[in-house]
Nucleic acid binder design. Structure first.
Length: 565
RNA sequence: CGGGGCGUAGCGCAGCCUGGUUUAGCGCACUUGCAUGGGGCGCAAGAGGUCACCGGUUCGAAUCCGGUCGCCCCGACCA
């Protein structure tokens, strides 16, 4: 491709909207263009990268016998109503009507459709296991898209679905898929972490995520430097160690705390650490109001709580609702004599003594509140988030908290969809059975951003060869080298290299800057050195090393460098 | 959904507070020519705008007022 004709616009100034390095560079190098919040176009240069990534994914998926297909982007609402997700999915699911009033959704994911498809199409265990996948646009109406392409509303995803006879078959596919993902991310030169994302109490429902560490990522992950344990914050467990101190139970007393509502205020007001306090939060759930009690320095793990209570809805109750239902002023709720709703209590609470809590009366708090003596939990469980200083559940070492970007997700679905959608096959024994399913996603359009986050310098992107939009850029300086450049360009192209030729009538500096920004792995430079020595220079983007070679050696040297880059 | 900020040329911005010499300006990019040709060089001449939209106030609105829409950031969990 001749750069003079290429549809691209690199720019010096970064649009104000861009915060993260990858977002800035993608805009600067002209890979993407935004049209609306979370809605982007891929320009030719950006699309080439995407195309390379897609090729890698296809290759690796095909290797394990997965079959590619393409499902519709617009789905009828019917299937979603059947699976229950029409109601459960929430506002991220974009629903709309056609001219006849028929209800549809823009696909945020495809479990329903694929389950129906396979349910209709496969009758016998003889065809199992089956893995199908597609690479397609998804739409999720995110409340707040951010970070450019990282959290977009419209994005490209590879989603694969496996269908097995039984759970052990699923295990095998799951392991295979894990290895495939490792292969894909390694080929993209991504430094990733495989993170446990175990989904709680329902046995065997295993889940893993592939996360790249990045400050601009929006997932919190927890890791143990000692044994390598890693997990998403909401899914993490910790070693519950609470000191059993010898403290005596003190007498329960009410104190006056006018206008003191938050833990922070209370802590300042009394000069006591938040760990000596309890906070009581009221949540609205599917089955009404619940009161949740954790220590003042702890945070509630809503993901766990949701699973524990088996509820879809889990929102903090508003001031009004709390007053009406419990008669308590906001800021003064407490566990003692909280009779209007069930008390869900974190296990750290019942291990402690003499807490300070709300009194359920305005402007009053209680001191020396003791579990068991002063209040009686309906349920005690581990419902708080891991925080700094907590111990690893595997080796008791101190856990670390970092941030990361989720790129891939493996999930064992079991019969979650095959059951409600009645997707069955005949087993060997001649009986109807439900498919045991797994699903496996990769955020394809996130990969370029993640790769840039991990492969760049001040000048711009440094594409790994396998995903680079072009392998080589020819930079010709001045009219004297134009003709020879053209010949080299055509020759390299004929040999099968992906070559960009900067034939623009611009100063050398501009061309170098652009080439660096675009991150093309190898430059072939024709300038003074060619005019004086009849040699071209080949410069590596990543290491900056320069080789001078005669015309006939260009191709072999390039090939050699590409292999090792 | 709450809070904050912003909307002026493809991009980055100034002008707005205090309405009228502003024919709406600057830098980058773009076009033409000169010059130059190894790291965003220089000179000259150009082209490019319904000042987000709708309404109001006024003799007069990018500027003041009201509304709408869009975009960005933070929060959406500490009772």
């Amino acid at each position: 491709m001749r750069l003079s004709r290429y549809f691209i616009c690199t720019c010096r100034e970064v649009p104000r909207e861009a915060e993260s390095v990858s977002h800035q560079m993608m805009l600067k190098a002209g890979l993407i263009k935004k049209f609306s919040a979370g809605i982007y176009s891929y320009l030719p240069l950006g699309y080439r990268v995407l195309d390379k990534i897609i090729a890698i994914i296809k290759e690796e998926m095909d290797r394990i016998g997965a079959q590619q297909l393409l499902l519709p982007f617009v789905q009828p609402a019917e299937l979603w109503k059947k699976s229950g997700r029409w109601a459960d999915y929430g506002d991220e699911l974009l629903r709309f009507q056609d001219r006849k009033g028929g209800e549809y959704v823009l696909s945020p994911t495809h479990e329903e459709l694929i389950t129906r498809l396979v349910g209709d199409g496969i009758d016998s265990y003889r065809k199992l296991p089956l893995i199908l996948y597609q690479i397609q646009i998804k739409f999720r109406d995110e409340l707040r898209p951010r970070g450019g392409i990282v959290r977009a509303r419209e994005f490209l995803m590879k989603d694969a679905y496996s269908f097995c006879q039984d759970f052990s078959g699923l295990q095998d596919i799951y392991q295979q898929m894990k290895r495939t993902y490792e292969q894909i991310f390694t080929r993209c030169r991504l430094n990733y972490k495989l993170v446990e994302a175990e989904s709680g109490p329902i046995g065997g429902r295993v889940s893993h995520e592939f996360i790249v560490p990045s400050d601009s990522g929006e997932d919190s992950i927890v890791e143990c430097k000692n044994c390598g344990y890693t997990a998403k914050l909401e899914k993490t467990s910790y070693l519950p160690i609470y000191q059993r101190d010898e403290e005596k139970l003190q007498e329960l007393k009410e104190i006056s705390t006018p206008g003191v509502k938050t833990i922070e205020e209370l802590s300042q007001f009394l000069g006591v650490s938040p760990s000596r306090m309890l906070k009581t939060l009221l949540y609205q759930t599917d089955r009404g109001l619940i009161a949740v009690v954790v220590r003042g320095d702890h945070q509630i793990n809503e993901t766990k709580l949701r699973e524990l209570m088996d509820t879809q809805q889990l929102t903090l109750a508003g001031d009004e609702l709390i007053k009406v239902k419990t008669g308590v002023e906001i800021g003064f709720a407490g566990p003692v004599k909280m009779e209007s709703c069930p008390l869900i209590v974190d296990e750290a609470v019942v291990k402690g003594k003499n807490f300070i809590t709300g009194s359920n009366r305005k402007d009053k708090h209680l001191i020396n509140v003791n579990p068991a003596r002063d209040f009686h939990p309906s349920l005690v469980d581990n419902i708080r988030l891991v925080q700094k200083g907590d111990k690893c559940p595997q080796c008791a070492n101190i856990l670390n908290l970092t941030r990361g970007m989720e790129l891939g997700h493996l999930f064992q679905l079991g019969t979650k969809y095959s059951k409600p959608l009645q997707a069955t096959f005949l087993g060997r024994e001649g009986r109807k059975r439900e498919f045991v399913m797994g699903c496996y996603g990769i955020g394809v359009s996130r990969l370029p951003a993640a790769i840039i986050e991990q492969n760049h310098d001040e000048e711009g992107i440094i594409w790994p060869v396998e995903v680079a939009p072009f392998q080589v850029i020819i930079i010709s300086m001045g009219p004297e080298t134009l003709e020879i450049s053209r010949r080299i360009y055509l020759d390299l192209q004929k040999q099968g290299l992906e070559v960009l030729w900067d034939d623009r009538e611009l100063r050398a500096g501009v061309k170098f800057k652009d080439a660096d920004l675009m991150g093309i792995p190898l430059k072939v430079i024709l300038g003074n050195t060619y005019l004086t020595e009849r040699k071209v220079e080949i410069k590596e983007r990543r290491r900056g090393q320069i080789k001078k070679v005669t015309s006939d050696k260009i191709y072999p040297v390039l090939m050699e460098l590409l292999k090792n880059a």
